[in-house]
């Protein structure tokens, strides 16, 4: 019985939580939050979905294996860290766009870095949890 409730709830919960996680990610520079927490919230969203609808369903929904989020995330973070080196600035130096962007605030390499973190956190935690669920 409660699976039905959960199923219905998760249908709406997943996009909602994902949106929230992105919000947490983007606002992290100003309010509590950031890539870590954002990523973890997103991961929990998918886990809840998997609990409700079964793992295969969630995996179909995601299309790619969550593990592939890790190299993507790492690549984004690494590139945003190394980008300043092209400008002959030390590794990880913040590079900022002049004018602030609505919602996010100032746009800079730090944000891309945080997006990388976000992706890696989702990828890693989902890989761990999904693998375990698959191979009980």
């Amino acid at each position: 019985m409660n699976t039905i409730i959960l199923k219905t709830a998760s249908k709406y919960l997943l996009p909602l939580l994902l949106l929230f996680s992105i919000f947490v990610l983007l606002r992290g520079h100003y309010l509590p939050g950031g890539g870590f927490v954002g990523g973890l919230i997103a991961a929990i969203a998918f886990v809840l979905h998997a609990f409700a609808n079964g793992l295969p369903h969630t995996q179909r929904l995601m299309r790619i294996h969550p593990g592939f989020l890790m190299p993507f995330g790492l690549a984004i973070s690494a590139v945003s860290g190394m980008f300043p080196m092209l400008l002959n600035q030390p590794f990880m130096t913040g590079v900022w766009k002049k004018d602030p962007v609505p919602v996010i605030g100032s746009l800079g390499s730090a944000l891309f870095f945080d997006i990388g973190v976000y992706l890696v956190v989702i990828g890693a935690s989902l890989t761990i949890l999904f693998t375990i669920s698959e191979t009980r």
């Binding site: 992290g28 520079h29 950031g34 890539g35 945080d114």
Partner: peptide, 11 residues
């Protein structure tokens, strides 16, 4: 350019 100092430290 960040106000959450903890996050600024992290990133």
């Amino acid at each position: 350019k960040g106000k959450n100092v903890v996050n600024v430290i992290l990133v």
